[in-house]
Design a protein around this nucleic acid. Structure first.
Lengths: 198, 198
DNA sequence: TAGCGTAAGTTGACACTGTCAAGTTACGCA
DNA sequence: TGCGTAACTTGACAGTGTCAACTTACGCTA
């Protein structure tokens, strides 16, 4: 395909490749991500991505990095919508977690499904650290529980992640988004988390 | 296998392919599973698996089916080791979950990581139903919690699954198996699960 | 017991994938 | 203006899943 008017240099190919890859993942799951498909969607040759990502793992990691930004924003929004008590904020983390997983199941699986990622990539580390930072910040006011701050964070993270995963596996089984949130709100309030007056 | 109904050429190619596939997954993760590699390990031609599995998804599903059997057995063993109280049995589910995830991370990700599976396959449905059956059986004695049996099961499943996943993502971060179990045992006992005298 | 039908396995092909090597274009800068 | 180099293209190679056509050998029946 030779369009003589088309500039040889793409405006911002790296970003376009990531965006195309996120689309592919959301449309067809983690396995649908392919360098050649991503290149085709960005309108460049099959080898162009190599100049921005040394291999498929690097592209996948960049997508996971961007996904963590969406993930963080989704949790922050849920927290902002919730009443200001520490316990409500913790429940909101679970709600945000759930909403992200259901809105972006492909991205969720890229981030957490065991596909190879460059765990040492600086941008990825930064982006995922911001996600965990939301968790730590919200847990801090109630972190004097039985197992210390780490125990509280682990408990909250486990419930949120486990519940979100559960609804993904069984999302064919008739539980829609609002049902899932309702169930989570039923389960969550009795967690052994010290409230502020403890 | 008795001599009278032994298959034609290979002793039992289907089982050999599944076993080889499980090895591949455990050695190289979910992405290392390939029909041609599995065929090579079983000593047959690259197209032989097609007579037992119509496509890669079917092979992956068969591996997930077998993985669920190991998963169930691991939970049952942890329950058998625990004191007989209902709450101890529930904690044992989490311990079994954790041990399985850490012993077989590749299988764990095949089962729960978002890779395509034949969710309608009869054997898979049966095997995974047995896994969930362990959960339901152990939760039954304490299932009169705030959200009913389903709420209790969802809570226990979420914690167990989320915690196991967490230790997998961060397993490079210095938490070994016994540390993980210790942390889980610290977190779990205070869950809002009705004990028998409630 | 002979032979036939068919399941099991082989060979070959095709389109697709990731990745490397080498060539071409065009942008930034001296 | 011209040069160096980053960005992109073209082409190739090995590996993948899957399909079609072929061969083998087992079980069954006549």
């Amino acid at each position: 395909m030779s369009d003589s008017n088309r500039p040889h240099h793409h405006g911002n190919l790296r970003a376009a490749l990531i965006a195309a890859g996120m689309d592919l993942v959301q449309e067809g799951g983690p396995e649908a991500l392919s360098i050649r498909q991503v290149a085709a969607r960005a309108g460049v040759s099959h080898a162009a991505p190599a100049h921005h990502f040394p291999n498929l793992t690097a592209l996948r990691t960049a997508i996971a990095t961007e996904a963590h930004r969406i993930f963080t924003a989704t949790m922050e929004q849920a927290i902002a919508e919730a009443p200001g008590t520490p316990k409500e904020a913790i429940i909101a983390i679970g709600i945000g977690y759930l909403r992200f997983a259901r809105a972006h199941p492909g991205l969720f699986h890229i981030m957490f499904g065991g596909a190879e990622l460059d765990q040492d990539d600086a941008e990825f580390l930064h982006s995922s650290a911001l996600s965990y930072g939301v968790l730590a910040r919200v847990c801090a006011p109630v972190a004097h529980g039985p197992a210390g701050p780490r125990g509280t964070e682990t408990l909250v993270w486990s419930i949120a992640h486990g519940f979100a995963s559960l609804t993904l596996f069984h999302r064919t089984q008739s539980m829609d988004a609002s049902e899932a949130e309702t169930l989570f709100r039923t389960i969550a309030p009795d967690l052994p988390i010290a409230s502020e007056q403890d």
